[in-house]
Each structure stands twice: as structure tokens, then as C-alpha cells.
Design a protein around this nucleic acid. Structure first.
Length: 296
DNA sequence: ACGGGTTCTTTTGTTACGTCA
DNA sequence: ATTGACGTAACAAAAGAACCC
């Protein structure tokens, strides 16, 4: 990948490299039109333009591109195609060879993508599927535009294509692929984070099982049990299900790395259990699942 | 109001090409 | 020079939304 990850602009919602991800899973199937609300994008854009796609109520964007200029100037051959039956994409018919008029390709296009007899843009079933490499400037502008908004309405697509000396179809494909890459990257990040969550929970579970075993063993020997500190680890808040940290006077109840306390192993000079209110000294905001708390 | 058809867009998956180690 | 991995442009299919009749 030319721009690698930074090129992808992946200051994604998880921010996994940082310590506290603002974890937002995208596991729910989303409606087709408002689903790619990438965090770094200005969501207002989609609100503005998705709703106005049909009305072509477009506004200028990206500074230099004024999509409001008269069709005679913005309009390239693609513009006619929008209103024609053989319009831009026409994925229904799948006749990709018909989607792009190739009459007035710019010189840049001819130089970059029409290597040889590429007059049909590598139509369906055509073995001459030519692939061009976008120039650095083109990629840069596309990236900048994508940061602004991850989708384009037809006029924006046309304007951008005009500015980049690309065909609107190429801009469209680039945005499609770019969205897919972003989503894939986000999925990978989410996956990685869930994996770590799972590992942490597994480890926590293992530790708690061990404690349960130890407690059961202690319960079988009451004398020992009477002389030990309260099993603070197993004191659970009924509402938030968080483990309380006991303010036991025993120094043996050192806090565990995850915030709970270690099981005090019974010793000869253990004190008797002290009635305490474990919740008093623990101002915990009620959170159904504090994922970050379990991360190491 | 409702249903069917059309058009266009999106996502998802795949293929083929370009680049680089 | 060759090759395999990787990134990505291009394509196809399916589904959804908006619009029209």
C-alpha cells in the first residue's frame, strides 16, 4: 500500500494504540446509506448530501471544487449519463462497458489508463482489464476528499473527476474501495481488541476459579476460616457487579492488578472479619461493561 | 394507499495488475 | 531475472432506497 495505514487516515474509533479506546463496535448491520460514519469524517456532510442526492442540492466542497457551477462547466460526458438509461454505474445490467462514454477522455486519462486499446475500460468478461496507478497528487486529493466525506453525490463525483482528470467511474470505484479498506481496518482493530478482552476475561476467570477453590478448601477447616480476613474479592456489588475493594486493615490483602484484592491466605496472626461496607469507599460509576478496566 | 418497475447507490467479495523485497 | 506477498484498481453481484406510474 502506498500510503500504508497513516494514509488510510485511521485515527479510528478504537484508537487501539492508545490506552483507552472509545470502543465502538460496528457489529450491527447498518442501513446501506448511513453506515459508513467514519469517526474522523464530518458526519454533517452525509446528512447534507445524502439527503440531497436526488435533488442534486450540492454545495461546494474541498475549496477548489465548486459543484454548483453550471452544468456546462462541471458537466462532462458523465453528466449526460446520469440521466440516461445507461447511466454511471448501472450495476443492474452489469454492462460496465456501456457505463462510461469514452469520447472525450482527457489527455491525462489517455496517458494514464488507456494503455493500448483500452477503449472499453476493460468491460465485463474482457481480458483487457487495464489497471492504472493513480498519481501521488490524485491519491492525495482523493484522500483529502475522503477525509471530508466518505461518500460522494453525483455532482461531487463529477467535479472531483474533472479536477483529477479521471473518469467519474474511477472516482466512484476509488471511494468504494476506500470505504471497504476503512471498514476492514476497523474490523481488524475491533477484532484485536475483542481478542484482548477475551484473554483478559479468561485470565480473570481462571484466577477467580482458583480463589473459589481456595475458599472452599478453607471452609472445610473452620478454625482457619474464623481467623482470616473477609474474602473481599468475592464481595460483589449487586447493582454494577463490580468487585469491591475492601478497606481491610490487614496488609495481606494487597490489591490485585485488576483492582480486586488478593485472597488473604489464612495465617496464624490473621484477624477476625471486620464488618465493613465495601461499597462506601468505592465511588464507581455504574457501567455495564467497563472494558478498559480489564485491560492491562 | 399500495405494489411493481426502474434507477442509482451501497456493501461485499473477487479478480487482475503493479510494486517491491 | 524470477517469484511471492501485498496493495489496490476494477469488476460483479446482491440488496436497499428513492422515485415514478
Amino acid at each position: 500500500m502506498g500510503e500504508k495505514d497513516d494514509g488510510l487516515g485511521l485515527s479510528l474509533s478504537l484508537g487501539c494504540a492508545t490506552t483507552q479506546p472509545s470502543f465502538k463496535l460496528n457489529l450491527m448491520p447498518m442501513p446501506s446509506h448511513h453506515n459508513m460514519q467514519i469517526h474522523h469524517q464530518k458526519t454533517s456532510w452525509n446528512e447534507l448530501f445524502h439527503s440531497s442526492n436526488r435533488n442534486c442540492d450540492t454545495r461546494s466542497f474541498l475549496g477548489g471544487i465548486d459543484v454548483n457551477i453550471a452544468p456546462s462547466t462541471v458537466e462532462c460526458d458523465e453528466e449526460n449519463g446520469v440521466s440516461s438509461p445507461n447511466s454511471t454505474v448501472s450495476s443492474i445490467s452489469g454492462k460496465r462497458s456501456e457505463r462510461e462514454p469514452i469520447g472525450d477522455e482527457t489527455e491525462a486519462e489517455r496517458a494514464s489508463c488507456s494503455r493500448g486499446s483500452d477503449d472499453e475500460d476493460g468491460g465485463a468478461g474482457d481480458a483487457s482489464r487495464k489497471k492504472l496507478r493513480l498519481s501521488k497528487e490524485q491519491s492525495l486529493l482523493l484522500e483529502e476528499t475522503f477525509k471530508e466525506h466518505s461518500t460522494l453525490n453525483p455532482k461531487q463525483k463529477l467535479a472531483l473527476a474533472k479536477q483529477l482528470n479521471l473518469r467519474p467511474r474511477q472516482v466512484e470505484v476509488w471511494f468504494q474501495n476506500r470505504r471497504a479498506r476503512t471498514k476492514l481496518k476497523q474490523t481488524e482493530v475491533d477484532c484485536e481488541y475483542l481478542k484482548r478482552c477475551c484473554e483478559n476475561l479468561t485470565e480473570e476467570n481462571r484466577r477467580l476459579q482458583k480463589e473459589v477453590q481456595e475458599l472452599r478448601a478453607l471452609k472445610l477447616s473452620p478454625q482457619l476460616y474464623m481467623h482470616m480476613n473477609p474474602p473481599t474479592t468475592l464481595t460483589m456489588c449487586p447493582s454494577c457487579e463490580r468487585v469491591a475493594v475492601s478497606s481491610s486493615s490487614s496488609s495481606s490483602a494487597a490489591p490485585a492488578p485488576n483492582g480486586s484484592t488478593r485472597l488473604p491466605m489464612g495465617g496464624p496472626n490473621q484477624q477476625r472479619p471486620v464488618p465493613i461496607n465495601p461499597w462506601a469507599a468505592l465511588p464507581i460509576h455504574h457501567r455495564p461493561f467497563d472494558a478498559s478496566a480489564s485491560r492491562s
